[in-house]
Each structure stands twice: as C-alpha cells, then as structure tokens.
Design a protein around this nucleic acid. Structure first.
Lengths: 221, 221
DNA sequence: GGGCTGGTGTTACCGGCGGTAACATCGCCG
DNA sequence: CGGCGATGTTACCGCCGGTAACACCAGCCC
C-alpha cells in the first residue's frame, strides 16, 4: 500500500482535516494558507488551530504521515540482503520512485517553509534528517571504515542525503533521463567513478601543457 | 530594461541601501522584514521598492554581491593545476572556508526564503545553482566520462553541490571535526571509499530477526 | 430533569507582512 | 523661470498567522 496511508483512526476528525490539508497542498503547493485549508475542509480557521496549535503543527502532522512510508521504504532498502552496490542502487531507486510518485508531497517533505527562527538554518528538512540518520546507521553498522567510522558515517549520511536531494530535485524538474539511468549516474558517483576516469586533454592549461600519464577508465561494476 | 545592476559604485545610493540590508540580515537572519531594513537605512519602505522592485529583487541584489567572491573562489579552485584529488580537496576546502567565514551570509545564500510560486521548487538556491554549473562545466571539460559525459556531468554537478551543502551545513552547525578532516571525509566519499571498504560482520541478518545467535554470517563476495 | 463537560462551529478582531498610491521636497540644468 | 528626476513622506490595501468570545449540541452523572 504505497499510497497515503491513514495513520491512526483514533482521531477521525483530525485525519479528516489532514486529508483536506493534503488536497490543498497537492493543489496549491506547500505555501497554501490556513484559510485555504480550512475552506477545503469546509470549516474555518480556529478549528485548525485548536487541533494543531499553529501552522507548524499542521505541517508537522502532515509530513509525519507521509514520511512514514518513504522512511520505511528507505530503511527496508538499506537492509536488503544484496551486494553493496546493488543495495545502494536499490536505496537510490526507492527514493527517486517515492518523489516521482507525488512531487507536491515530496516538495512539502523536502523543502518546508521557513519555520521557526529558533533552530539554526538546517539544510535538511526533518524528513530528510531522518533519512540521513538511517544512512548513517546503515553505513556505521555495515561498512568497515576503521577508527574514523563514526565521523565518516555521519558526514556521509548527511552528504549522501544532500546529494540525492539536489540531484533528485533536478531530475524531477527537467527529466533528463530515465530513473534507472539516474540511479546509475548517482551510484557511479558514489562508486568513485569521478576518481577513476581518465583526464581529458587539457583544453585550457593554466600554467603547463599537460604531461599526462595514462589512467585506466574502468567502471568498477 | 531595469535588470540586475552590477555592484559597481555607479549607483552609490543603491549600494548604501544594500549595506543597510546586509547589516539587518546579519543581525536578524534572512527573514528580516522590509520595514526593518528601511529603518536600518534611516528611510521608509517605498524607497526600497523603488530601487529593487520587490523583496525578491532586494534579496537577489544582495546575494549577487556575496555570491561573486565565493563563486570566483570556487571557480579558481576548480581550474587549479593540481592532481585531481588535490583539486577536489581544494574546492571542498574553499567552500567550507567560505561558509565558515560568514555563517549568516552563507545562510542567506544557501537557504533563501520561499520566493515566487512560479518557479518549481528548486532544492538549490541561485548561488548554489551557479556553483553546480561550475562543477558541471569542470567535470565535463576535465574528465573523460565516455558518451554519457553530458548527463553525468550535470547530475554530478548537482549531486556534489547538494552533498557539500548538506554536509557543510551539518559541519558548521555541530563542528564534529576540523575543516581539513571534513574535507578528507567528503573527498573520501567522492573517491569511492564507500565502495572500497570491507563489509562489517553482519550484526543484523536482514531476513531472520530470530534471537538465534548461531547463524553464521554468509560471505556475499 | 438540571447541570456540567467537551468537542464542533462561528464572527470578528489583532498586529504585521509585502506592496502601492498620492503627495511633498529638493537640486539641477536648459 | 520651469520642468524633471531623484529623494522622501503618510496613509492605505489585501492577506497572512493567530486569537478572543461566544454559540450549539452531544453525552453523562447526580
């Protein structure tokens, strides 16, 4: 059931309001106003505020619903019993498939409104922070990185998440290629193809004309 | 054509207003109001609107000023006559040094306010989009990537930028290590260390969560 | 029944936001 | 002198997030 799953029928009115908010945000984007959401639900603003406190509370409740499925999918992909390269590709594909299925929702999850001025400027929205933590945990528990493993796992978790966020955003926007190809491109980057590829004949030598040794261009797949 | 004017002193009033806006944003963060900026400049709102059209115009002019130096530094680092790994490290260090020097300004550049609903939700702020384009160009012109070079260069440009953005954000916020170490961590990621590292003994067998500790770790290689 | 409580709903308002219209000055230059 | 283009003002608009104050209706216990 990859669709928007109702979280908890314990509070049916709340779920109903969240569904209305979902519809409006799907239509108008993440900047939808509280008035618009209330109108879509057939009610007026104060009820929303009674249920969710403030706008952030509504957005948070909304994102938590959608985050669950994506996060669960990513987590499952991260522990799939595959060769590491295949596992990584599986995770990448899972994320891209998720954002492809519901772009507006994905925008809400990944690019929330400014929010509270208290927290410092996090690049990663809460949903992505959770994904980053999943990756960090997976790397730390699955890959032998020596004494720096804690630092590397944390830095890589954030870095990989940001990489996939930015690249996925661009891919979703301009659709330069199919999804599997995009997965390949990103996995190649993670697999050090940037390091392994040969130099191109220097078109603009800054100081010295190139004395290049030969480096083999191998795809380590 | 009242297009983006350069930062030359040909329009001293404009520069003066931008300086005031700079001060306010440094103090109050990127969400500073137009009233506050006008007050800091000792004037009132309509003058700001005469000069910059709307809030986005002001922010754009402001970011363009700051972007120039960072972008120039990154561009220079991208064409440094070094071994590729050293060049990459140099670029990473340049970016991290830039955001370390002026965190508030960096936040303005990398995490702008929502902006117009017309454009689709870009993950990358304009300044970062430019950096991504620089990386794309450098990769395309320096690295031999075969027939897919255009796609790979573009995807990697965005991906690397997003990676450094997210990781740099985290680093700046929690300062888990020194700058050179962070540069190493990110360069290692780009250099395929994730692919090259050995597996760790599987602590969590993915299929059977049974409390049976006698399950032997299968060797996937 | 009476009264209490709790959820649902309303209208009307607040301060602040981005943005604009209309009007008042200056200095400069033909 | 007259115009003209910057500079500046006050006062306003519509919308926003958020809040008071009040009304209604169920159930539920005494």
């Amino acid at each position: 059931m990859p669709s928007a799953a109702p979280a908890n029928p314990g509070e049916p009115r709340r779920e109903q309001l969240l569904n209305a908010a979902d519809r409006v945000i799907r239509r108008d984007g993440p900047a939808a106003s509280m008035n618009a959401i209330a109108a879509e639900a057939g009610i007026t603003k104060p009820i929303l505020y009674r249920h969710f406190g403030d706008r952030n509370g509504l957005i948070r409740a909304l994102t938590e619903r959608h985050t669950r499925s994506l996060l669960a999918a990513v987590r499952a992909a991260l522990t799939e019993p595959l060769e590491r390269r295949d596992r990584v590709e599986h995770v990448l594909d899972t994320y891209l498939a998720g954002i492809e299925a519901r772009p507006q929702v994905y925008r809400l999850l990944t690019h929330p409104e400014p929010g509270d001025p208290g927290g410092a400027g996090n690049a990663l929205a809460p949903a992505l922070r959770q994904i980053a933590e999943e990756i960090t945990g997976a790397v730390r528990s699955q890959v032998d990185l020596g004494p720096d493993r804690d630092l590397l796992a944390e830095a890589w978790g954030r870095g990989i998440t940001g990489m996939v966020l930015a690249a996925g955003d661009w891919w979703l926007e301009s659709r330069p290629c199919s999804r599997p190809r995009m997965v390949q491109a990103l996995a190649d980057l993670l697999w050090g193809r940037l390091a392994a590829a040969a130099d191109l004949p220097t078109a603009v030598p800054p100081t010295a004309p190139a004395p290049d040794p030969a480096a083999p261009a191998s795809d380590p797949r």
